[in-house]
Structures are given as structure tokens and as C-alpha cells.
Computed example of a mutant assay.
Amino acid sequence: MHDTVIPFDDRGFAYGDGLFETVLVRDGEPLLWEAHMERLARGCVRLGFVGPERAMLDTLPAQAGQGLHVLKLVVTRGRGGRGYLPPADPQPSLRWQFSAFAPHQERWREGIRVRLCRLRLAIQPCLAGLKHLNRLENVLARQEWNDPDIAEGLLCDSAGRLVEATCMNLFWQRDGRWETPRLDACGVAGTLRAALLAERPIAEVAMDTDELAGVDALWLGNSVQGVWPVARLDDAEGNTVARWPITAIHRPLQNAGHALLGYPGLAD
């Protein structure tokens, strides 16, 4: 754990001027590490500062020891600057923390219930794909429900196109083809999503919410939890929009994701 007092003028604290990564670590070995490091480096370039040295970052996962942990990395531009104008020579800050972790295995097997959120994500291509520290949209969306039976909320952009869940990426099968939302306008480009796109025939498409009820299967996934099949979709008022029986159709994409994370495959 590396947790020091955050200076009042740290730009991550003041403005959300920074990035973070959440990495699954098994017995000291990070999963999808290259994808996490590439996204972090890409984010630093996009925000316009030099990130931590890769050699130093590579030493962190082994500190977790045995068992399953999540390593959270937080990188900010550092201190200073006049108002929003960043300092000419920023000194980025890095903090990290390990947390013991156990996945929701019952959600792998039984599927989950999700809802549509009222909140709409702002379209901002300059930040699209990044896992930046400005996550107020996700915070507001997650406050829309308190029902513990609802595992996640699905988010659209201001044009009504599906983007993601509050903390997971979205996949579906339609007419026998795997698809996922395009993330060129907003949303977080997850590392598990990137790995699946590289390995499997998944098309990036634009789709409105009213088309979602007609898909053959629906999943949520990220690099920590794995892949959850969706059994029920509600609207923002709690009315059921669609139900899907969890069957063999769900397992190929789910098992492909779990193979990348060292999680067990599932069969019906």
C-alpha cells in the first residue's frame, strides 16, 4: 500500500486531472497487465503529461503476495498550476493500493438483473476510452437505484446510443453475431473488452436502447469481475423490458473472457 496525504493543490484532487487502473492480480501475477499499461500510457499522452516509469510500475503487482487481489493505481498530473492551466513542468503523482478480492461467482452461473439509467453520458471524443478520474456521471447514475437485486445500470450517451454499464462494458449477440458499443464519443475502453476484440470476432457498432430487447444474449464484463450474462433488463421505472434464459448460448463469450483472467469456464 502506498497512501500518503494528498496535497490540497494536487490536480487530481482539485480537478480530476488524472487517471486510474484497477488490475486483477493472482498470486502476484497481474492479468491483462500490458493492456492496462497501454491504456494508462495512452491516457497520459492524451492529458499531456509524462506518466510513471514503466519499470517502476512493473514491480508493483508482485507485492500483492498470494491469493486474489485488486491493485488500484491512481496517477495525477501532480501539484500546482494557475487555476485550470497546468504547470509547465508537471511532477505527476502515483498512489497505489491492494485489496483482497473474491468474484461474484453466482452471477457467472445464474446471470444478473440490470436496469436502464436515466442519466446520459456527455459526448466528449477527447476523453473517450480513457479511465480518467472525472467519474461524476457514473456516481450520479449509480445513485439511481438501491435494490440489491439489480447488479448494474446501463448508460446511453446524450444521443441515445448505448455505451456501457456504470463500471462494466457491454456485449450482446444479435443474429448470431457478437457486438459491443463503439466508444469513440465517450465511455471507458475496458482492458478485457480490448483483449476480447483482439481475439474474437466482435463488431463495434452503434445501437439504441429500443433494439436491446431483441438481442439473442446480453453480457456485462470487466477485467476484475469477469463476464456476467444478463437474465433480466428493466427500464428506469422498474418495468421489465426483456428476459433471457441463461443457456449454452451465453457460455462461449463468457468462457473466452474468463480464460483471459484465469477464471473457470462454465458449461450448461
Rank of each mutant, 00 (worst) to 15 (best):
Thr180His: 08
Leu154Gly: 02
Val205Glu: 08
Ala151Thr: 14
Leu218Tyr: 03
Asn169Ser: 05
Asp175Tyr: 09
Gln225Leu: 05
Trp219Gln: 06
Ala185Trp: 12
Cys156Glu: 07
Leu154Ala: 10
Val230Asn: 04
Leu183Asn: 01
Glu237Asn: 13
Cys167Ala: 15
Arg161Cys: 11
Ala189Lys: 14
Leu196Glu: 00
Leu183Ile: 02
Arg161Ile: 07
Ala198Ser: 14
Met207Glu: 11
Glu199Gln: 13
Gly221Tyr: 01
Pro229Arg: 05
Glu164Gln: 15
Met207His: 04
Ser223Thr: 07
Leu183Pro: 01
Cys167Pro: 06
Trp219Asn: 08
Ala189Asp: 13
Val188Asn: 01
Val215Ser: 07
Cys156Leu: 14
Trp178Cys: 02
Val215Asn: 08
Ala213Thr: 10
Val215Ile: 09
Ala231Gln: 06
Arg174Val: 05
Gly176Ile: 02
Ala213Glu: 11
Cys167Arg: 14
Asp234Cys: 11
Asn169Tyr: 02
Val188Tyr: 03
Glu211Arg: 14
Trp219Ile: 00
Ala151Pro: 08
Trp172Leu: 09
Asp210Ser: 15
Leu162Cys: 12
Gly226Glu: 02
Glu199Gly: 09
Ala189Arg: 15
Asn169Phe: 02
Ala185Lys: 12
Pro181Trp: 02
Trp219Tyr: 11
Glu199Ile: 03
Ser223Gln: 08
Arg193Asp: 00
Arg200His: 09
Leu218Pro: 03
Met168Gln: 13
